[in-house]
Computed example of a mutant assay.
Amino acid sequence: MLAHDPDWSLDLIVTLELAAASRHSDFVDLADAASQSGAELLRTLNSNNPETLRAIASANVDFIFVIGWSQICREDFMALKPDRIIGYHPAALPRLRGRAALPWTILLQEPITAGSLMWLGQGVDDGDLLDQQFFHVAPDETAETLYEKHQSALAQMLERSLAKIAIGDIARQPQDPRYATYAAKRTREDGLIDWNDSANAIDRLIRAVGKPYPGAFTFNKDDRFTIWRSSVLPSDRVHHAIAGQVVERSEDHFSVMTGGGLLRVHDWETASGKAPKQHAVLGGTGS
């Protein structure tokens, strides 16, 4: 958007070193974007290190946009362009400040969320709002579909916000701290399925941590088993089995007893490439 707006130029793109790309499941290499827009490309491991700060200062830009960057911008970074650093947060701020906002949106069953453009402040996602784009969260929303909705929201907000900033119309709406909530960091291991949970809760976890994230997982003995897509079966399907036990299977799916109802698994992958056998019991830690 910046590269194509006639009132703006994109002079520098700062992105992650390729050697560190595996740290982020949604990493995208921006080399092509830099080449197409004529921007200089700088790869770094830390946006707060002196070399990176000098490069940004030397670019002599009017505004800095921090989008899709998981590191906190420290004091020296913030001093580069005071009150002119814009960030994006994938939540309806001041709700869900912090980490892993997309998975938490699904896990908390948020019916409505938003993308938020904000002026970076001194705290965590607490800066004045520049713009927000609200949208509904579907009952069967996945991390992948929610990610796409945020991409669309960001594009729409940038289109209208860039035009306004270019003519000096700069919005700054303070956040109301009375409505603030905070989302904790989530790790790969938080995707471990507890089959004592209900089928609805497990399906929600699978949707929340699916692609582009590492996925929800269980174990078939010592074989790590990642589940990408599932559905909850009607409550009139009665099977007597323990939580985690495979009660039926076909070539393209299998069903597992949970602590509340049956979960049908449609898309999965395993370390061994083998699907679980009928009556196998999933769970444990693989050790």
Score class of each variant (00 low, 15 high):
83 D>Q: 14
66 V>L: 05
66 V>K: 07
74 R>F: 05
81 K>E: 12
72 I>F: 15
99 R>F: 10
87 G>L: 00
80 L>T: 02
81 K>Y: 05
96 L>S: 15
95 R>T: 11
101 A>L: 12
86 I>C: 12
64 I>F: 01
97 R>E: 07
85 I>A: 10
72 I>A: 15
67 I>Y: 03
66 V>Q: 06
97 R>K: 06
73 C>H: 11
68 G>I: 00
87 G>W: 01
60 N>P: 06
65 F>E: 08
96 L>C: 11
87 G>D: 05
81 K>H: 12
94 P>C: 09
71 Q>P: 05
82 P>V: 11
89 H>P: 04
100 A>Q: 05
81 K>L: 13
86 I>D: 07
65 F>Q: 09
88 Y>I: 04
95 R>S: 14
77 F>W: 02
104 W>L: 12
78 M>T: 13
96 L>Q: 15
103 P>M: 00
87 G>E: 04
90 P>L: 06
93 L>N: 02
84 R>G: 13
77 F>P: 02
87 G>P: 09
104 W>A: 11
71 Q>N: 05
96 L>P: 11
101 A>P: 15
104 W>Y: 10
98 G>H: 01
96 L>V: 11
98 G>V: 08
79 A>C: 03
59 A>W: 01
90 P>C: 00
77 F>E: 04
71 Q>V: 00
99 R>D: 10
91 A>C: 02
82 P>Y: 04
86 I>T: 11
66 V>C: 11
89 H>K: 01
73 C>S: 13
88 Y>T: 06
84 R>H: 13
97 R>Y: 04
91 A>Q: 03
60 N>E: 14
64 I>V: 15
79 A>W: 00
91 A>S: 04
73 C>V: 13
76 D>A: 04
72 I>P: 12
83 D>L: 12
60 N>Y: 09
98 G>I: 05
71 Q>E: 07
74 R>L: 14
94 P>I: 09
68 G>D: 03
103 P>R: 01
87 G>Y: 00
65 F>Y: 10
84 R>L: 09
76 D>V: 00
90 P>H: 00
75 E>L: 10
96 L>Y: 15
65 F>D: 08
91 A>F: 01
97 R>F: 02
102 L>C: 02
70 S>D: 12
95 R>D: 03
63 F>D: 12
93 L>A: 01
90 P>D: 00
59 A>Q: 00
94 P>H: 08
64 I>Q: 08
59 A>D: 02
70 S>C: 10
74 R>T: 08
90 P>Y: 02
62 D>E: 15
99 R>Y: 11
64 I>L: 12
63 F>E: 11
73 C>G: 13
75 E>H: 08
75 E>D: 12
97 R>G: 11
67 I>G: 02
